[in-house]
Design a protein around this nucleic acid. Structure first.
Lengths: 251, 251
DNA sequence: TAGTGGTCTAGACCACGTC
DNA sequence: ACGTGGTCTAGACCACTAC
């Protein structure tokens, strides 16, 4: 028997396409349970690894989510809209609101799950961005954000050590307006930002800290003062299926 | 025999980590060939699917690239820096240069591989963004961009049909300055842009049109005139490993 | 022609969630 | 207790590349 029917397609792709069509047609709605590995094996007469491969296609496209011991479920696609420019407009954090509360157009709450603040030597990459010698001490502020009970964002900000040591910037709760308000009070208000974006599959560590997303977006934000000094380098890892980034600007 | 040595890790993950360390230490440089499936099976005493799974980890993180019949090779990571804001600054296209030539800081050339221009009814999504009734005719301009012989970007722009019919906008080569310059001459110069970004694994169709990337970035750009009219909706699909997006803006 | 990655089979055990 | 997805085995054939 041929392993692959010539005229058509690959088996796993055919099964994946059929499932995808069923989701798009509304046959399976958000939260619904899809036929699992065992059911697909029986229905299509294929081996476990083939059924698995088919489900893997939907999983990696973010359509579907596998829960061990439970089944495969259609994801509800309600991404956060993260407005890169508006949310960093000066008034937002100057007025005492956290930067992140600007993210939500609806009632869902993005809360901080975990905060670690510690001093450590700068990696070569961070040192280069901060404009300090490699190995120089920097303060690092790592946190994890949770939306609807699911971790969706890891963020790690680094500040030059001599700038923020013994200030509110390195306290777990920096107070109203967040670290940018505190930096402003110290005479180092950020006035310009650069965000660099790329995407890939998560590492094992990132997958474990987020809710095993199939794709992550990486954002590196560099914050400059009016004099051009870099006061923050912020590396973020976002669950790609939970976010839409938005940038608006003039010609 | 236990399938999984308890204290340590999963087999495929251990093998993947070892390979990753070898790449990061420089033991394998860009373009070098890694041990393949057969070699890993022998070296680590595992089955084919396990060795394969390990290589799949590196592949999906964009570290490595598999070439059928040849082997697995370390990717050379030289991403294009796409400056979202600067490249759409008015002077760029007003002066008669293509928008895309602003992308390159080095000598590499991003060229158009394929152009299709055709009239078609708007999908519900595009119609919503363009602010026209669904099914309304729009002109669509699809193209593929190639960098160093490898396709890295698919782009599909849609324009309201009555705006661009029988104009240079819908000619395969729109002339110096690109479509934005032509829209300007028609009295519909874009003055404001919105870009919405997300990422996922490519569909089978996208993978086939690009060079089988493991992750793609999706950008939807909406172009507005001074009066707020939408004159273009541009859906782009980027090979994530070939791009770094950059946005710079003031607080 | 020899070797490679890609697909596929038909079994197995495990950790886990649901009942 | 049972079913689920996740891992793993030991085989196989195929299409493709490089020689």
């Amino acid at each position: 028997m041929p392993r692959q029917s010539k005229g058509t397609q690959l088996k796993y792709q055919r099964i994946a396409d059929a499932l995808k069509a069923d989701v798009e047609s509304g046959r399976y709605g958000p939260g619904d349970r899809l036929p699992g590995e065992n059911e697909l094996m029986e229905q299509h007469g294929v081996a476990r690894m083939t059924a698995r491969h088919a489900l893997g296609v939907l999983r990696s496209e973010g359509i579907v989510e596998a829960r061990k011991g439970a089944g495969v479920f259609v994801r509800s696609f309600r991404p956060l809209r993260r407005s890169g420019i508006r949310r960093l407009a000066g008034e937002q954090w100057a007025a005492g609101r956290s930067v992140w509360s600007a993210d939500l157009g609806d009632q869902r709450v993005l809360t901080v799950d975990r905060v670690v603040v510690e001093e450590a030597p700068a990696s070569a990459r961070v040192a280069g961005l901060l404009g300090v010698p490699a190995g120089q001490p920097v303060w690092e502020r790592r946190r994890r954000y949770v939306l609807d009970g699911k971790p969706v964002l890891l963020a790690g900000s680094r500040f030059p050590a001599e700038l923020v040591r013994d200030t509110a910037v390195v306290r777990p709760d920096p107070g109203p307006g967040g670290v940018y308000a505190r930096l402003g009070e110290l005479g180092h208000a950020p006035t310009r930002f650069r965000e660099e974006i790329t995407a890939r599959t998560p590492t094992a560590a990132e997958a474990a800290e987020l809710s095993r997303p199939s794709t992550v977006i990486l954002i590196t934000r560099t914050a400059f003062t009016a004099t051009g000094t870099v006061v923050e380098v912020n590396d973020m890892v976002l669950d790609a299926a939970s976010y839409i980034l938005e940038y608006e600007f003039d010609a």
